[in-house]
Design a protein around this nucleic acid. Structure first.
Lengths: 209, 209
DNA sequence: GAGGGTAGAGCGAACGTTCATTCGCTTTTG
DNA sequence: CAAAAGCGAATGAACGTTCGCTCTACCCTC
């Protein structure tokens, strides 16, 4: 007979995940000890284990929560009538506004995903979701005439994701890196991929071999 | 009175680093135990500690060695009379030919660099070196007339590094990712940044605000 | 050329610490 | 007064590191 509803327990789980997230962002998945997480959450180990069965579960919880948040933000900001304005705002939010902690946590997740299948699946599902949404965005923009219709949507989206990831990686490696300076270049390249005439691209491709 | 020269000890250190590198690529910096590294190197712990004072030193050694190798490869492939051919070969080598292990190790180093100042310094020094070399390459190409002279070299190089890092990140996250498909797009964008006329770019920048 | 002494190379069990996890207990609350 | 919430010392495994030991190969002496 639960004293309070299941919602209470869920809230408490969320609090713990938030505390653990801070620890992981600071120390890394495997350097953050349970004691550290307990201290951050203001809770004894014994009690914490009533909410999560293992450290592994907390790690998976952090990753799932983080990806879900980013996905929700992408889903929320999707619809506007001007594609490039929408996209520029999206890019700014994702590449600049996000905190250094978020960037750090993400490097942690990428490293962890190499040997933790649960994390790998979370990352790949997220990627697939982002890809689907971006392609839908492009198709919609092409339908409205904002961008060319004869572009390679798959290829462009892949490149957009590559660049976005690259900015994150760069932020992670170089604290002095200012994402603000690459934003105009990023938008210029995006315009080129989505507006540039196909003749140019063909010419370039011929000249490349 | 050393029985054999110092060179022998240096060789042995290199062997250990190579074994440790394999372990780290497989298990991660902090999941790879000294016992695991000893087994991979075919050596007892007691003996291994005669070549490295601590695990920390091995980690730093791996990072230093890896970055030095990549830097040496970049330095070696620099001079050709056709800029875009040189650059395409460089890109192919760096983005496609490198093994999944190399990619994995790099994610490990990026994650580690967030809280290990020694690793952070190695990564940043490497970045600065690459940046200098690429800018020199561009200036040289501009001098030869292969590319425009009025481009923002700093900005272009930053974007090139962003994209290169992005491809690595993508390879790390998605094992099915085929870097081959983005190479033509990458080269197209590079051409656009280095050959595209400035009027286009100005127009885009105006339209963007 | 043979042989013993010695210093470096190498070993692996042992040490002390830290970690994730557990459990018997107390406190709080409906 | 149950039953859930919470505590924190205890547990056993795993870790990085050390240390006392053996083995090997070189060098000097005869």
């Amino acid at each position: 007979m639960p004293r309070v509803t299941t919602a209470f327990k869920e809230d408490r789980r969320a609090e713990i995940l938030e505390a653990a997230r801070r620890c992981v962002a600071r120390s890394g998945f495997h350097q953050a000890s349970m004691q550290e997480i307990c201290a951050e959450a203001g809770m004894s180990p014994g009690n914490l284990y009533r909410y999560f069965p293992s450290k592994e579960a907390i790690i998976a919880g952090i990753a799932e929560r983080d990806r879900a948040e980013v996905g929700a933000q992408l889903a929320a900001a999707q619809y506007t009538d001007d594609f490039f304005a929408t996209f520029a705002a999206l890019a700014r939010h994702h590449l600049i506004d996000r905190s250094a902690d978020d960037v750090g946590l993400c490097t942690e997740m990428v490293a962890e995903s190499r040997r933790n299948p649960a994390i790998a699946k979370i990352m790949q599902d997220f990627d697939a979701d982002v890809r689907t949404r971006l392609i839908a965005m492009l198709r919609s923009a092409a339908g409205r005439g904002d961008i060319r219709s004869d572009v390679d949507f798959e290829g462009v989206v892949t490149m957009l994701m590559v660049i976005a990831d690259g900015v994150w990686w760069r932020r992670a490696v170089d604290p002095a890196f200012d994402a603000e300076t690459v934003l105009p270049i990023f938008m210029d390249l995006t315009r080129h991929m989505l507006l540039g005439n196909a003749a140019d691209r063909t010419k370039n491709k011929d000249a490349q071999s």
